[in-house]
Structures are given as C-alpha cells and as structure tokens.
Design a protein around this nucleic acid. Structure first.
Length: 493
RNA sequence: CGGGGUGUAGCGAAGUCCGGUUAUCGCGCACGCUUUGGGAGCGUGAGAUCCCCGGUUCGAAUCCGGGCACCCCGACCA
C-alpha cells in the first residue's frame, strides 16, 4: 500500500521502494518495474540491457513453452552464424530496403579492413536461405522445418527495455515447403502456437490477424500477428509469422526436384517471438504495487515468509516454514523460503509483491500453534486475497490456487481488452476512440496512402485484419467505398 | 540528423551563477544493539580519477576552449 504525501498530495511515497502509479505515468511505471523487480539492468551500450536472472527466468519459461510446441510439430533446432555477408542482404530487394537503416556492420576484424563487410544479423532469412538451397534437393527433403534460438541486432533509435532494444533474444523459425498451401498451413500453425503460449502460459489474450501491406515484413508475401493490449491500452505486437512466398527461394535459389523430375522453387516461411514478450507480461498484468506474474511463467510461484518476534519463536516458525517448503516443492511447485535476516515481514511482503510472485505463504507463531498458515494471492489486493489454510493439505490447496490465479489474470486481461475495443463506422468515430486511448475496429477498404494518413493524423496504425470477421461487406470508415474486411486500429508500441 | 537538457559514491540529488581548508545530503551497503503479523529505529563505518583532455589561477567540481557520453522532444522505424 502506498503512503501518500499529505503535504503535496503527490505520490512520491517511499521513493526508494514504491513505484510511480500507472495512472500517473505508465512509461515511468514500466521502467521502474523493470529495474525494481530486478528483471533487467542498464548496460554500458546505448539501447541494450542486461537481462538479470529473474527476468531471464521469465524468458526461459516462455522459451521452454515454445520449444516444446515446436518439437511437437516436427521442428528441429539449429544454429546459424551471427555474421552475415553484406551481399546476402542485398539479394532480396525489399528485404534489404526494410532493414538497411538499422544494420550494425562489421568492417574491421583481425586488425585490418574486411574485404566484404559483415552484417550482424537483424534476422536470418538470408543466411538460412543460402543454407537451405544446399540442403534441399528433392521433394523428399520437404518440408524442412528449422528453428534457431539466437540474438539479433537492430540499431533502433528509440529503445525501451524488452520492448525495443538494439540487441534482443528471440527464436526464428525458418521452413521450406513444396507449395503455397503447405507454406500457408505452416505459417498459420505457428501463429496458433504463439497465441496458445500467450494465452495459456502468459495469460495474455491476443487477437490473431493479418498485417496490412504497410506493416508487412520486408520481403514477405503475407505477415500474420498476435496483438495484445497493454494496461495503458496500447497495442503490442507479440509475435509474427510470415509466408515468404517464393521471394527468398528465388533470391537464394532454393529449389527441389518434384516427382516428375522438374525443378521447382520452394515456398518458405519464417516466424519469430522475442524477449519483447517479457515486456508484454509486465505491461499486461502489472499493477501499482508491481509485477503480477502468471503462475505458469513465474520463476517463483510461492514465497514463504516466516514471521517471529523473538529467538524463542524463531526455531518453531522456521521448522514449520521448512516443512511447508518441502511439501510444496514435492508437489512440483516452484517455492522459495525467504530466510533473509534483518528484514521485517512487511518489507518482504512488499518486496515479493513488486516481483510479482503469485502466492505468498505467511507462517507465524500463532499459525504454528494452530497448524495453519496464511495464503495471500497476488492477483487480489490486501485482505481480499488472504485466507487461512490448514498446513495438512497445503500442497493441494496451493496448486488449485495457482490455477485459479492463472485463470483470473487471463480473464481480467480479457475483460479489460474487450471493454476497450469499439466498433466504428466513420473516421470521426475512429478519431474519438483513438483519442480516448481505445482500439477501433471498422470496415476498411482504403489504400496504403489512406492508411498512412490515418497514422499521421491519429497516431494509430492498422494492427491487423483480425481472423475473426463479421462476414459480408460494408463501407470503408474512411473512404466510404466498398470494404470486404474489418481492420483493427490502435496506437502501438 | 535538428532542438533542448544532464554528467558529482552503487542509485538519486545539493554545491557550479559569485573559484578558497577535509566535497554535502538521502537511499542502498557493512557491523552492533533494540525491533519483527504490511515498506523499523538508533549508533558506528566503508564507499568519489566531481565525464575526459587542455587552458586561466597561488588555488578549479566551480571560470574558459575542445571532446565524449547519456536523457527528453522531433524526424526515422519491423
């Protein structure tokens, strides 16, 4: 609970510990959370961050959830080099144009200038395409389903921890197929996997859809996306999947011999999800007391805070804490017993709330005597989230509670999102909705230039054409011309 | 790349205008005592090339010249 300054009315409470309220300055709130919850630290190079263990463990959870699903759908991991010959990027015209402004290029190595500069990969379509052209000979080699876990570099001018950094971690899937239908099936399958991880692991509801021409990946035929709403109502593209058509196959000569002994060009796909997702978890669930982590991704699911006044009480309480710790751990729960000395319980409560631990278990002398403990859930504030439970069946109760918290975070986020999406029929309505921070959904039949105009005038972009369409047709909200699909507009990160 | 701002202990700041002894304060950190069911108190202590280089001066965190870095606004942007 924040203690507000009575003299100024400002919420500069306990400056060193508390966080700026979301309603006061969401960006500031976000930055403070990232550092105070120990997710990341500043690094010496502009636009880069050090991902600290607690933040990395969240990424690890996302990574494991994805990797499991990639393997289950027949993909294999591999690793391609960080350095890409500059000439590779040039081979696909649209691709090089899309990326050249943000490339980091190595021109010197080994004490002398390189004959050909090496690009630090912004993404690996080109170098993987080159490899695929050698690996693939026959239709029997297809589909080729590869994924790599890697870091990439994009020299961004304006950076924010996790959301946009000059270097970031991600996975990039790259596949090759016999025909368009198979490539499209793959592209959509991987988007589904992203949505599944977002919804069921991160508890973030997402809208799946297709990107507009303008927002399409440089070199792709079609780009698909999952879009999530943050608590400031801005949209965050949380994962994308591209049907690359035959553009890269053509540029890198990725061909196969079909059953009739004819040379055919492959159809390729690529898809990526990055450490940006960690930022999504922070911004989709966090509140004014800190992070709120979904149990499935929380590095620590339950923290046990022992409470005692005297040395006499210390022993029995710590013993009980250890027993509870063992019981929960045996049940497969990621649990931590907070044995730090010299800190009062109140401080620890706030500390773990800042770090977003879903469940806190308080155990004090009275509880030891009564063979109970107090369970407090992070998703419900204060007393509302507390219950006294018997120590005997602690594991079962806690497991159920974790599931409940996971579900509740998802439904809270879904309710928030649904309450902030509005159907609009005219440009005026769109402007009003965007102005108030919401997402606007409406029929769209405009051109690329029309779309740019909306962006210039309102700051909102087409986040996607959602897969879920009302059906039929309507008139474009901007041009009033015929429109066959609805688009979703929002201000985005 | 244009406009504005800031560089002083791990973090945040004061001091700079108007040069002057040992550079100040808060948080954090270490140790001790008292505390401990919602952000503890007191005491002791460690911790600084005052962004860098040069100049002026008896003397520079402070004045002058040059450089670098970072932040904000704009532009740009998978």
């Amino acid at each position: 609970m924040c203690i507000f300054s009575l003299t100024t009315g400002e919420d500069n409470c306990m400056v060193s510990q508390a966080v700026t309220r979301q309603s006061v300055d969401f960006s500031k709130w976000y930055n403070e959370i990232v550092y105070k919850a120990d997710l990341a630290a500043h690094s010496p190079v502009r636009g880069t961050i050090i991902i600290k263990p607690y933040g990395y463990e969240i990424w690890d959870g996302i990574k494991n959830a994805l990797d499991k699903r990639f393997k289950a759908t027949g993909h294999q991991n591999a690793y391609f080099p960080l350095f890409i010959p500059e000439s590779y990027l040039r081979r696909e015209a649209e691709h090089v144009e899309g990326f050249s402004p943000e490339l980091a290029v190595v021109t010197h190595a080994g004490g002398k200038q390189l004959e050909e500069p090496l690009v630090v990969r912004p993404t690996s379509e080109t170098i993987i395409g080159e490899a695929f052209s050698e690996w693939i000979q026959s239709y029997r080699d297809l589909p080729l389903l590869i994924n790599q876990w890697a870091n990439v570099v994009r020299w961004e001018l304006r950076t924010r921890p996790f959301l946009r950094t000059s270097e970031f971690l991600w996975q990039e899937g790259h596949t090759a197929h016999v025909d368009e239908a198979d490539a499209e099936r793959e592209t959509l399958q991987m988007l589904d996997i992203y949505a599944d991880v977002a919804v069921h692991e991160a508890a973030i509801p997402v809208i799946q859809g297709r990107k507009s021409n303008i927002e399409r990946f440089a070199g792709a035929l079609r780009t698909y996306t999952i879009e999530a709403m943050m608590r400031d109502k801005r949209a965050l593209q949380s994962g994308t999947s591209h049907n690359l058509g035959q553009n890269f196959a053509r540029a890198f000569n990725i061909q196969y011999l079909d059953e009739n002994n004819e040379q055919k060009l492959c159809w390729t796909t690529s898809w990526g999800l990055s450490t940006r997702m960690v930022g999504a978890v922070v911004m989709a669930h966090g509140d004014d007391t800190g992070l709120r982590l979904p149990p499935r991704l929380a590095p620590i699911q339950v923290v046990i805070v022992p409470i005692f006044r005297s040395e006499d009480e210390r022993g029995p309480v710590m013993d009980a804490g250890s027993r509870l710790n063992a019981a929960l751990s045996d049940a497969g729960i990621r649990v931590k017993l907070d044995t730090r000395e010299g800190l009062r319980p109140g401080f620890k409560f706030n500390d773990w709330e800042m770090r977003g631990v879903p469940v806190r278990l308080e155990i004090g002398p009275k509880d030891v005597e009564n063979e109970v403990a107090v369970l407090a859930r992070r998703d419900l504030p204060g007393k509302e989230g507390k219950q006294t439970v018997s120590q005997a069946n602690i594991a079962a109760v806690t497991l159920e509670l974790l599931d409940d918290i996971q579900a509740n975070l998802l439904s809270q986020a879904a309710a928030f999102r649904d309450a902030n999406i509005f159907d609009v029929r005219s440009y005026d309505e769109l402007k009003q909705v965007i102005d108030e921070g919401g997402w606007a959904r409406g029929w769209w039949g405009g051109s690329d230039d029309d779309e740019r105009r909306v962006k210039d005038e309102t700051g909102a972009t087409i986040r996607c054409f959602p897969f879920e369409q009302p059906g039929g047709s309507g008139s474009c909200l901007l041009t009033a011309g015929p429109a066959s699909q609805v688009a979703l507009f929002a201000r985005a990160y």
